[in-house]
Design a binder for these strands. Structure first.
Length: 570
RNA sequence: GCCGCCAUCGUCUAGUGGCCCAGGACAUUGGGUUUUCAGCCCAAGAAUCAGGGGUUCGAAUCCCCUUGGCGGUACCA
């Protein structure tokens, strides 16, 4: 595939055949990169073509270690993993740490652990143990410096790249001038000052240790357009690149563009899934791949997740302003990862919901994603309500043991007091969590672990205090309420069956002129003061201090006769 | 400024020239349900398909213009 016939050979005889221009380029390249570098041929040998089925996709997630894992990164990783898995390909992790200014200590750990939490562990690249797997490494760009240099050197040798000595100030000046002249800004054509500087002069500059960057020598024409076929956006007409983009910074690290071309080629990426802010870099990337003699991968430009901002406008979920942009948010609130995953899948391919309905017990990993169903639009607005609905569904389906374990491990980390309480008597709390659970119509009132304490703390016998009856509204007078409670206390027993228990409550209701069920009440509204619900509510409030609780009978059973009577006597 | 992407109920969207005076889900409202809330079941409201021009017998769907939103235009990714 790659032909490097124009690659300067070590053979001195052939070197003799080099034109003076070629010799000058080679000399400059040597000056630019004096040390030993791996040869391009050796790199191709080191990173051979992957042996995979023909339509297998090799995808990757390539975050920058900035100390923050964006939910959009998880979204991208999720989609990338799905496509690789469903085609028996490879999904890997590459750390893009070429910007030393933005790099944050410990950030790799954040990335790796976030991915792990969402079940998105890469097949290749750094794992949670800090060890790299895979044959195409290193998977950290800062450790691939020499690889990039080899290719950059090659580009200089064939005169597709050149050193640029322009200072920041000079660049700014040109930019201003271009603005004034109302011409397209950028380093191109005649604006590219260093493009045609004398190679010998460049050599002298290097000898004087002048700082420099390496730029691509673009051969494109901005007036020409070409069609890029995007897996998501479809066919897009774009102008050819004519910018002499920086491919190596003055710190000798490559820019994203060069690293993308080199890494994704060498690592055998077949499909690049990335944010759609990259779409306008396509012309540059195409040119880079072409200059390097690489076949470019397929591209899928994915719209970001948005949010409505204060002024009512739409903006990308912001790292600084929006807590929900950070994956830590979901962990702290205790949204189950699986719920977040399902929500994300749902915005990726909206027919996920129908699939979930038809496959209620399958792992979301079994859902097949399609590029043409990914939104071509401007990107969805993050919908917390929808996430919560999905979470309620997910938690509703959990078995009590799973729920208990999940709540416990969350609480131990984020609410140690509550964690201590539920871990002190696992048997009891497991019973509490099994109320209205497991049947085909489970209770669905929890959307995150942080809500559990509020709805279940009354089960904590030690801390239960007399409910505040001023918060309780009823047609019943306070003396009647007292009577109901004492009657209840007299007749209930822990050996009651649900039917017996119900019958007793009905008896109390009858004593106070309440109908035994809603239907009877509705048929004879003037005969009754209300229906049994009113009585049940009094007992519920007395027992739980809440107007909302799981099934009262089961609750009382879990609490036990003694505890119930104690509370009724308060 | 220039270049590109996008525009359907509050939200996510279905829709690729007739099946659409626009369908589903979430949310909302109302009703039902041998105990409340929740859940579940049923029902309702909710989009002049951004606006304007074409093309066509026929357009949410194709074309053009306008407007609006988003992105890019870095030695950041």
């Amino acid at each position: 595939m790659e032909k490097y016939s124009n690659l300067p050979k070590d053979n001195p005889e052939e070197a003799m055949n080099l034109s003076t221009e070629q010799k000058r380029n080679k000399k400059l390249a040597e000056k630019l990169f004096p040390g030993e570098l791996p040869s391009i041929q050796s790199l191709f040998e080191k990173y051979p073509k992957r042996e995979l089925p023909e339509d297998a996709m090799v995808t990757r997630i390539a975050p920058s270690p900035t100390g923050f894992m964006h939910i959009g990164g998880i979204y991208m990783a999720l989609i990338s993993k799905h496509f690789a898995d469903q085609t028996k390909g490879v999904y890997y992790l590459r750390i893009e740490d070429t910007d030393k200014k933005r790099e944050v200590e410990g950030a790799r750990k954040v990335i790796v652990e976030s991915l792990h939490r969402f079940g998105l562990d890469p097949e290749e690249g750094e794992g949670t143990d800090g060890i790299e797997r895979g044959k195409y490494g290193p998977y950290r760009q800062s450790e691939r410096k020499d690889i990039y240099k080899s290719f950059i050197k090659y580009l200089v040798e064939i005169d597709r790249a050149y050193p640029c000595f322009c200072s920041e100030e000079e660049l700014e000046k040109t930019h201003k001038m271009q603005e004034e002249l109302k011409v397209r800004p950028g380093y191109y054509g005649t604006w590219a000052k260093c493009r045609d500087i004398d190679k010998n002069f460049a050599g002298e500059m290097l000898e004087q240790n002048k700082p420099f960057v390496i730029r691509l020598r673009s051969t494109g024409n901005n007036a020409n357009t070409f069609i890029h076929n995007d897996l998501i956006k479809g066919s897009v007409e774009l102008p050819e690149n004519d910018l002499d983009a920086v491919i190596m910074k003055s710190d000798e690290l490559p820019t994203y563009h060069l690293a993308h071309a080199v890494d994704d080629h060498l690592m055998g990426t077949t499909h690049v899934l990335r944010g759609d802010e990259w779409l306008s870099s396509i012309p540059l990337h195409y040119e880079l791949f072409q200059a390097l003699n690489f076949k470019h991968p397929e591209y899928a430009h994915i719209a970001p997740i948005n949010k409505i901002d204060e002024s009512g406008g739409k903006r990308k979920l912001s790292k600084r302003k929006d807590p929900e942009a950070n994956v830590v948010f979901y962990e702290e609130h205790g949204y189950p990862e699986i719920a977040v995953t399902e929500y994300l899948l749902n915005i990726a391919n909206p027919d996920f919901e129908a699939w979930r309905k038809n496959n209620p017990d399958k792992s979301p990993l079994g859902f097949k994603l399609f590029f043409n169903k990914l939104s071509t639009g401007a990107g969805p607005i993050f919908d917390k309500i929808k996430l919560q609905n999905i979470a309620k569904e997910v938690i509703g389906k959990m078995k009590s043991e799973e729920l208990y374990q999940s709540v416990l491990s969350w609480a131990l980390k984020h609410d140690s007091e509550f964690g201590k309480i539920i871990s002190s008597d696992p048997e009891y709390w497991l019973r509490v969590f099994s109320i209205e659970r497991g049947g085909n119509k489970p209770r669905k009132d929890i959307s995150m672990w942080s809500e559990v304490k509020e709805v279940s703390s009354f089960f904590n016998k030690e801390q239960f205090t007399k409910p505040d009856w001023s918060n309780f509204t009823s047609v019943l007078s306070s003396s009647e309420i007292k009577d109901i409670i004492s009657q209840c206390s007299e007749i209930i027993s822990s050996v009651d069956s649900p039917e017996e228990w119900m019958e007793k409550i009905r008896q109390i209701a009858a004593n106070f002129g309440f109908a035994p069920n809603t239907k009877t009440f509705k048929e004879n509204r003037n005969k009754y003061r209300g229906h049994i619900g009113e009585i049940a509510q009094v007992i519920r409030f007395s027992i739980t201090g809440l107007t909302k609780s799981p099934d009262l009978y089961q609750t009382m059973q879990a609490l036990g006769e003694q505890e119930c009577k104690k509370r009724l006597a308060l």
